[in-house]
């Protein structure tokens, strides 16, 4: 049994007109192994963030189920920590207090010193030493998300859920933080489920990339295996012969096929709704 199983998850929203329901996505199914880094890419409105929130337990699914480590997910919990697109730091708390809130919740029987030491360890891991007593307002977007990452890693969750974590960070800083994330992930080998718009980011970080068709009634059309060996880094990965093949494939899918739900590779046979996604290997 896989570590994290997303099994035929379907989500309906009440339609804006008030009558009936709109299907956001249908039959999302994927098995994620322990320590795997899986990314979802799709156009806005395909429901990928909703899927992430469902895994986090923050939203309910209409049909289907999610099984983590043999247990069904029924609500939010400390075993699945989210790194939010808009950081979601408490603005009335300092950097230290924000992370301490999480550490205290995760390790209720630790004493003060142990908690403080743990918080400081993660603050220095993301290079925020000296900013412990600053409030989020005083930090740049990049620094805020470093706090978000430190908070998420500090409680050592079974699954890390990254919801477009670098979308609000300027392009230059984004690259730096992506590398930091790679290093932190290398050290912990958490299971990660990420949602992003950024194809390069997905290739750099992921083991597998799920491509979703456009909503409504979106589905997982393809799963791309990224076989580029690790460790990867931004300046060497682009020299790998598969890099541009994968990149072009994903972009072709997003530009040409996402709206039709057809797949690029393979025989081009029409897929019936609910059919298993095509696995593409490079």
């Amino acid at each position: 049994m896989a570590f994290l199983e997303i099994d035929h998850v379907t989500k309906y929203f009440p339609s804006p007109s008030g009558s009936g329901q709109v299907c956001i996505f249908k039959d999302a199914t994927i098995k994620i192994e322990k320590g795997e880094f899986v990314t979802t890419i799709g156009h806005s409105g395909c429901g990928k963030s909703t899927l992430l929130n469902i895994i986090a337990g923050l939203e309910t699914m209409t049909e289907g189920g999610i099984i983590l480590n043999g247990k069904e997910v029924t609500g939010p919990g400390l075993d699945r920590m989210v790194v939010f697109q808009n950081f979601s730091l408490m603005p009335w708390m300092t950097v230290f207090e924000n992370i301490r809130l999480a550490v205290r919740a995760a390790y209720p029987d630790w004493d003060r010193e142990k908690i403080a030491a743990h918080v400081h360890k993660y603050i220095s891991l993301v290079g925020l030493k000296g900013a412990e007593d600053k409030r989020p307002t005083a930090l740049s977007g990049g620094m805020k998300q470093r706090v978000g990452l430190a908070r998420a890693f500090s409680i050592e969750p079974k699954v890390l859920l990254l919801d477009e974590p670098f979308a609000q960070i300027d392009a230059l800083t984004r690259g730096v933080i992506q590398e930091e994330l790679v290093q932190m992930w290398n050290a912990t080998r958490n299971t990660v489920f990420m949602v992003t718009h950024d194809v390069d980011e997905a290739i750099l970080l992921s083991d597998r990339i799920m491509l979703m068709t456009n909503g409504p009634s979106a589905r997982i059309a393809e799963i791309v295996d990224v076989t580029i060996p690790r460790p990867r880094s931004r300046d060497t990965i682009i020299e790998h012969p598969h890099y541009y093949k994968i990149r072009n494939h994903i972009i072709h899918f997003l530009v040409r096929h996402a709206s039709h739900g057809e797949t690029d590779a393979g025989s081009g046979a029409e897929q019936a709704g609910g059919a298993a996604p095509l696995v593409v290997k490079f």
């Binding site: 919990g77 400390l78 699945r80 999480a102």
Partner: peptide, 28 residues
């Protein structure tokens, strides 16, 4: 902001902590 409540929910804060650490300071 729902985000604050989401964080509180993920961290499984008790009712008391949720009120005094998140809701009241957030709405202060």
């Amino acid at each position: 902001r729902k985000d604050y409540l989401h964080v509180a929910a993920i961290l499984q804060l008790s009712w008391f902590k949720r009120l005094f650490k998140v809701i009241l300071p957030g709405a202060a």
